[in-house]
Design a binder for these strands. Sequence first.
DNA 1: GTGAACTATGCAGTATACTTCATACTTGTT
DNA 2: AACAAGTATGAAGTATACTGCATAGTTCAC
Lengths: 140, 140
Amino acid sequence: MKLINQLSKETGIPIGTIRFYEKTGLFTGEKKEEVKTNNYVYYGDDVVEKLRFIQMAKAVGFTLAEIKEVVDAWYKKQISKKAKIQVLDKKLLQIEEKIKELKSVKKQIAICKFNIENENIENADETIISGGRPFDLPPY
Amino acid sequence: MKLINQLSKETGIPIGTIRFYEKTGLFTGEKKEEVKTNNYVYYGDDVVEKLRFIQMAKAVGFTLAEIKEVVDAWYKKQISKKAKIQVLDKKLLQIEEKIKELKSVKKQIAICKFNIENENIENADETIISGGRPFDLPPY
DNA sequence: GTGAACTATGCAGTATACTTCATACTTGTT
DNA sequence: AACAAGTATGAAGTATACTGCATAGTTCAC
């Protein structure tokens, strides 16, 4: 069992943010009954996994509320199996959508790069170029 | 050339948000010189493309500041070719990273779904289940 | 046993991305 | 002409996700 500082070191997430996530209900630590002198909170390895999941899900544009839906579907009792599967299926669809959007963004940036690389070839790489679109490619 | 209302209808982005994006410097419309009675702003088809790009880039977790970097690399004069390519290459790397993260999140959700589907098989689909992890699969 | 480092709690403040509101002028319809 | 609907501008308000600060108690190294 880890204290919050170790959790922070293992994930790279600031302590304040971890506390914020816990307050948001994304996970919970536990106070040790045998320790009476303080009220330090201990976290299991599952919390590290959750934090990594949160990091990635956030990086691809999911909100904490959306992430919480998934976490609840996984951990919460009192949610029917049917409801849980529904939530997860919805997320899987959203992920497919995001993958499509990512590919589209990637393609547009690649085209953009191609255009820049092929305009004003006579100028050196530090030259200030004048913009414009030399080829009949779509914008972006 | 379109007015802001048409732009909104074509993209599904609220007028207020479009104005906000323009104020942020993501694109600009143009006032028509020949029209003297008002100061309506007109937008070209490129703005529609930009708005769609912004929508997608936002959906996969890019901030407006990051999106602006790309837009500036594409449209701004006074940025060297080298600097533009640098920005775009950085974005392409970020996108690869996001694709990896998306796949990881997808996998974890799929495992989560599998676990839920295979626990308490004897119960009907409306049953309140008690949680727990019946198989030795990693959390998420 | 003293000081540095760690922990808990609560509340205020910040950044980002909108969203609403108020005001005022313009355009299109009847 | 009247009135709904559209447009511009600026400022204030909101939601999300932190971030920092102040306070206070705890643990650890020396």
